[in-house]
Amino acid sequence: MSGRPVKRSLTLRGHRTSVSLEDAFWRAFRDIAAAENKPINQLAAEIDADRDMDVGLASAIRVHVLDHFRKN
């Protein structure tokens, strides 16, 4: 497992985008989506809609993952 970010593709509201996330965050993000019975693109779109525009999507996903596991 690498600590280096890897670029991954997502589709948000019909538009392709990419985020660079470390493997551990990507796996946790996928696990959260599965636990919530949501496609990963839907969860990413929800996070995208809730984030401040001065915060990058990858950072918003990392914070979402951290918050999720802090609460559980």
Rank of each mutant, 00 (worst) to 15 (best):
R13N: 09
R30W: 01
E46W: 00
A45K: 00
S59T: 15
S2W: 09
R27G: 02
D52V: 05
R51S: 08
G14C: 02
S2R: 08
M1N: 14
D23N: 13
H68Y: 14
L57I: 06
R51P: 08
G14E: 02
G56W: 02
M53F: 08
A45T: 07
D23A: 15
E46M: 08
E36F: 04
R16E: 11
A33W: 01
R8G: 03
R27C: 01
V6F: 07
A44T: 10
R62A: 12
F25I: 15
A28L: 13
R13W: 07
G3I: 11
K38N: 00
D67S: 11
R4H: 14
A35N: 08
H68T: 14
T17F: 06
A33P: 01
I61L: 05
H15L: 09
A44N: 05
N41F: 01
V55D: 02
L66A: 13
A45E: 08
W26E: 04
L21I: 09
Q42C: 03
A49W: 01
S9F: 06
I40D: 00
V65Y: 01
G3D: 11
T11V: 15
P5G: 09
N37R: 09
W26K: 05
R16G: 03
S2D: 12
M53V: 11
V63E: 07
H68D: 04
P5F: 06
F25R: 04
F29V: 03
Q42R: 14
L10D: 05
S2V: 10
R27H: 10
N37Q: 07
K71L: 05
A60N: 09
A35I: 01
A49Y: 04
S20Y: 02
D50C: 09
T17V: 13
T17K: 04
A28S: 13
D54Q: 15
A44Y: 03
I32V: 10
I32N: 01
